[in-house]
């Protein structure tokens, strides 16, 4: 199994070892090991039901909210086992943010959407500081210029692409170390998609970004590392350019060339 150290000498932000996930009796993920660095955008690709989203959700323990889900193996964030007993899941999720498939802004104002995380985690001492966090987050998410005059409007009144950038701003506002994106563009039109991809490029390096995507073109455009999942196993992991031009595994090659999936 290829892990990060064989690719580069950079340090892993997240390292997973032999991670398996069960939904009741059914095994959805089979002994996945991978190292995810901060420096790059990592893409998970593979056909539907291959386990890539399941694996993504183990990284901030969102699988905990699904009844009957069970995780085996070890996932370390900066060397700390996030599945150990006594782990503060609430703190973990503040460090590992998430953006979902369908934009899910809260039915609150744009301002309140972004201020949500800083408020619950007590990150801002006063109104001025909170305003600063909101402005900075919206700027990083590339939404500030579009919404700065209507921060009091409802977040749900924005267009789909703007809503998704609002969700990214909301995730950024708590200053996470990792951002997980679960097919963030699948509900968006091509122009909004291009805008999000551009944004991912801008955020690269500041946060470790992991993106699950159905679109191989998107993985090729935004990521530097790609992992290919199939039937609950991670088949191949490597530099994105290698995966798409010169895959080592036959199954990867078949998927890339459109033989199945």
């Amino acid at each position: 199994m290829t892990t990060l150290h064989e690719l580069d000498p950079v340090e892993a932000k997240i390292s997973a070892r032999d991670v398996s996930v069960y939904y009741g009796e059914k095994r959805a993920l089979d002994e996945v090991s991978i190292d995810i660095p901060t420096e790059y955008v990592t893409a998970f690709i593979g056909p539907s039901g291959c386990g890539k989203s399941t694996f993504l959700r183990t990284l901030n323990r969102m699988n905990d909210t699904i009844a009957g889900a069970r995780v085996e193996g070890e996932i370390r964030l900066d060397g700390e086992d996030i599945y150990r007993s006594g782990m503060d899941v609430v703190q973990l999720r503040a460090r590992v943010g998430m953006v979902f498939q369908k934009p899910n802004p809260f039915p609150k104002s744009i301002y309140e959407n972004v201020a949500y995380g800083p408020r619950i985690h007590g990150l801002a001492a006063g109104k001025g500081e909170l305003d600063g966090i909101v402005e900075r987050s919206l700027k990083r998410a590339g939404l500030w210029d579009e919404v700065k005059d209507r921060l009091a409007d409802s977040g749900t009144a924005l267009s789909g692409g703007q809503q998704q950038r609002l969700c990214i701003a909301r995730a950024i506002a708590v200053d996470p170390e990792v951002i997980l994106m679960d097919e963030p563009c699948s509900a968006l039109d091509p122009i909004a998609t291009a805008r999000i991809e551009e944004l991912i490029g801008e955020l690269k390096g500041r946060y470790a970004i992991v993106i699950v995507t159905h679109s191989m073109q998107q993985a090729a455009r935004v990521s530097q590392r790609t992992a290919f999942f199939h039937l609950g196993k991670m088949v191949e992991y490597g530099k994105t350019s290698d995966i798409f031009t010169n895959p080592r595994e036959e199954r990867t090659k078949d998927y890339i060339t459109g033989r199945y999936g």
Binding site: V90, L92, R93, F106, Y116, G117, C167, V174
Partner: peptide
């Protein structure tokens, strides 16, 4: 999705 969104923020 709203519930997930909030939980994923660490609420």
């Amino acid at each position: 999705s709203l519930r997930d969104g909030s939980l994923a923020m660490g609420a």
